[in-house]
């Protein structure tokens, strides 16, 4: 955002500034979600797609991608739990 925009925003009434702040918060949350999905896709594509030769995913590759993400998320929650227990 340019400094001219920031100046323009600072001159808006409070309700409008709140609207924009709310909107920005929303958009940032969505952007973060999409970025997380990009990251997961890279991790699981590397694991599950080891050769190219068709432009569609094989059924086994699709299944692998689903399992890859689910086990990755399980790993994440297991680690969070372990760290929390250590800190008790």
């Amino acid at each position: 955002m340019s400094s001219a925009d920031l100046r323009a925003i600072s001159q808006l009434d409070e309700a409008s500034r709140k609207d924009i702040a709310q909107w920005v918060e929303n958009e940032m949350a969505q952007a973060k979600l999409r970025s997380t999905i990009h990251n997961f896709t890279e991790i699981c594509f590397r694991k599950c797609v080891t050769s190219i030769g068709t432009q569609t995913l094989a059924k086994t590759e699709e299944l692998c991608l689903q399992n890859c993400l689910n086990r990755f998320l399980d790993t994440n929650s297991a680690i969070v739990k372990l760290i929390q227990e250590q800190n008790k």
Partner: peptide
């Protein structure tokens, strides 16, 4: 944040213009 600076009010059409432009630009950047 610079968002919450001074409070001199603009007219309501100007306000809508600014809001729309800012959101459009931010959405584009994202």
């Amino acid at each position: 944040m610079a968002f919450f600076g001074k409070d001199s009010e603009a007219s309501s059409t100007q306000t809508q213009d600014v809001k729309q432009r800012v959101m459009q630009e931010a959405a584009q950047e994202l």
